[in-house]
Amino acid sequence: MSKIILIKNAHVFAPRDFGICDVLVAGDKIARIDHGLDLPADIGDTVDADGAWLLPGLVDSLAHISGGGGEGGFASRTPELDSREAIASAVTTLVGVLGTDATTRTLNELYGKARALDAQGLSCYMHSGSYQFPVNTLTGSVRTDIMLVDNIIGVGELAISDHRSSQPSIHELVRVASDARVAGLLSGKSGVVSIHVGACKGRLQPLFDAVAASDIPISQFYPTHINRNDALLEHGVAFARAGGYIDFTTSTTPEILATGELRASAALKAALEAGVPAERITFSSDAQGSMTNFCEKGRLQDIEVGSVSSLFGEFKRAVSVENIDFVKALQAVTANPASVLGLRQKGRIAAGMDADLAVVDPQSFVIRHVMARGEWRFFDGGLRYAGAFAGS
């Protein structure tokens, strides 16, 4: 029999504000949202939210789940993501990617880690490829990767405007996007091309040129790190106004901020004030990625590790510090990335959607409980961990 859980008296943000409601979960799905729901005493479990916020589980569209880094030598390779950190941070859905290093970090490793996170209660997808062109694949081509490997939903993060990029031509960008798009259409996936954008002067121009030179819609490209500096943000605003989506990175350091990077929450405020529709903006954590600070000559100055917890942290900051509308801030970490990625069962609270939920205290903004696929994985501040090494 499917497990039945009733969450009562929750202030539901779906992300639209539904007010105080009861939410019924059956198995791994949301079954009903209504008022005055009750369960018989001998059926299921009831949790009284007592007016706390009930939010969709956060969707992290870019995380280096198998580790990344290496720009400072082998000793600077970053560790794999621990699923417990994601769960405790209300992140229930992730997309794993490779970055600079696709030699000692492989798609085979990425696939294995994604499956491990699935087994530990999360929903984990992945992209084919990495920073480099030609694109690394599991099956021999982008098209067959997306069509034949269930959890591969796109390509990325392919790098442009960065000294670590393979400097793909406009023709090469168009070809990758075309293959991903057709594969997505045939398999019912997004086929999105995640684009790492560096600090070089080209900014987003290669994407504008690729769109102008082809029939590929601008929304097929999904550029990230758009909060890297003011000039890139300005280009990102133009990209979004033209119909594209832009992504802001939530992991950062004081040293990187000192070089001109904007916090994701501040970039969200600036983009909204510049007229970008809220639906076209997302946040991602870049978890376990190397947060590098290079000097003007391309030499590495310092390096830190991205954190999955920064996704909730910047959502909180957007609301409490930048005074951004709650629903618009929540969209950036739930419904918007789910839409870009084609994850139709994620990012919203509605009947039939996956039961990925977070209960958050409205006074302290502290995460009380987290449900992933219908199971409480974090409850009353404590982890309910189902991994093979639960005691470690």
Rank of each mutant, 00 (worst) to 15 (best):
Q120L: 08
T100F: 02
E109T: 03
V95I: 13
L94S: 08
D60Q: 13
G69F: 03
T93D: 09
V95K: 02
S83Y: 00
A75I: 13
D60I: 01
L54Y: 01
N108V: 12
F74K: 13
Y131F: 09
P79W: 11
G99A: 12
H64Q: 07
G129F: 00
E80G: 10
L117F: 04
S76F: 09
A102C: 12
L117W: 04
T139M: 14
S123P: 00
E71K: 05
M147T: 13
T139D: 09
T93M: 07
A63E: 05
E85I: 12
R115S: 15
G121Q: 07
D145F: 01
G67K: 12
L107F: 04
H64L: 09
A102M: 03
A102E: 05
E71F: 04
T103V: 08
Q120C: 13
T104C: 06
L107W: 02
P134A: 07
S128G: 07
L81H: 07
G57S: 10
T139F: 11
V142M: 06
R115A: 15
G112Y: 02
S141V: 13
A114F: 09
V149E: 10
P134Y: 05
G70M: 05
N108L: 11
L148K: 13
G68S: 14
L55H: 09
D82R: 14
T106Q: 09
F74H: 10
G129T: 10
D82P: 00
S89I: 07
T78P: 00
H64E: 01
L138H: 05
T92W: 02
G96A: 10
L54E: 08
S66I: 03
M147C: 15
G69C: 08
G99Q: 03
R77I: 09
L54C: 05
Y111F: 12
D82Y: 04
G112D: 14
G57P: 03
H127D: 14
T100I: 03
G67I: 02
T78W: 07
N151I: 15
T104Y: 09
D60T: 05
N136W: 03
A116N: 06
S76C: 11
L55S: 04
S128I: 04
N151C: 12
A90S: 15
R143Y: 05
A116H: 05
L62A: 09
L148I: 01
A88M: 10
T78F: 05
S89E: 06
R77N: 10
H127L: 12
D118V: 09
E71S: 13
V59S: 07
T92K: 02
N151K: 09
S66N: 14
G57I: 08
L81R: 08
G72Y: 13
L55D: 00
E85N: 06
T144V: 12
T92Y: 02
S83V: 07
N151D: 15
S141K: 08
P134C: 08
L110H: 03
